[in-house]
C-alpha cells in the first residue's frame, strides 16, 4: 500500500513512492507516552503494595510495544523517487534514514517489468550499461504495471 505522487514539470518525469503510514512520528510518540504513563503508574502502585512482579511484566510489555512502534516508525520516512531528465535517470532510495542515489544514462536506460503467468508483476527494474536498480518495492502489482505503461514511451522497455 503506497502513496504515489508524480509530476511532469520542471523535469520530464518524476514520481515518488512512499509506504502508507497513517500515524506521524509525533503521534506515535504521544500514543506510546500515554500508554507507558498509564501502565507504569498502575505498576508503581502495585509495587507499593508489594506486588512488584507487575512492574517487570509491564516493563517487558512496554518494551515490546515500543519496539513495534519503533519498527513501524523506522520505515515511515522511507521513499523511492524516480526522476527522468533529458539525459539522465535518477533513482533515489531513502530507507531507514539512509539515502542511496543511482544515476543512469537517459539514453541507455531500459525498463524491465517481470510478470508471472497469472499477471502478477513482481519486479520493476531499470537497467543501463550493466547497472540495475529496482524501483517500486512498496508498490502493488497493478501500480507497477501502471507505472511501467507510463514510462515505456519515455524509456522503452519490455515485459517478461
Amino acid at each position: 500500500m503506497v502513496d504515489i505522487s508524480g509530476t511532469t514539470s520542471p523535469v520530464h518525469y518524476s514520481v515518488t513512492v512512499r509506504p502508507n503510514c497513517s500515524l506521524s512520528p509525533a503521534g506515535t510518540l504521544r500514543v506510546f507516552s500515554v500508554i507507558a504513563l498509564i501502565s507504569l503508574s498502575f505498576s508503581l502502585v502495585f509495587v507499593f503494595i508489594g506486588a512488584w512482579p507487575v512492574l517487570f511484566f509491564a516493563g517487558a510489555e512496554l518494551l515490546t510495544l515500543g519496539y513495534c512502534f519503533y519498527h513501524v516508525l523506522l520505515h515511515a520516512g522511507d521513499y523511492e523517487q524516480l526522476i527522468i531528465d533529458d539525459d539522465k535517470v535518477v533513482v533515489q532510495i531513502h530507507e531507514l534514514g539512509r539515502d542511496r542515489c543511482v544515476k543512469l544514462s537517459g539514453y541507455w536506460t531500459r525498463l524491465v517489468l517481470d510478470c508471472m503467468p497469472g499477471g502478477y508483476c513482481r519486479w520493476l527494474v531499470l537497467r543501463s550499461s550493466g547497472c540495475e536498480v529496482e524501483f517500486g518495492r512498496h508498490m502493488t502489482s497493478d501500480e507497477r504495471l501502471k507505472l511501467a505503461r507510463q514510462l515505456r514511451p519515455i524509456l522503452g522497455g519490455f515485459m517478461t
Binding site: 502495585f46 506486588a51 512482579p53 511484566f57
Partner: peptide, 14 residues
Amino acid sequence: LVAVMPVLASAVTM
C-alpha cells in the same frame, strides 16, 4: 488489554 494483561501475568506468576 495492554494495560491489564501484565497485572494478570504477575498475579499468576506470584
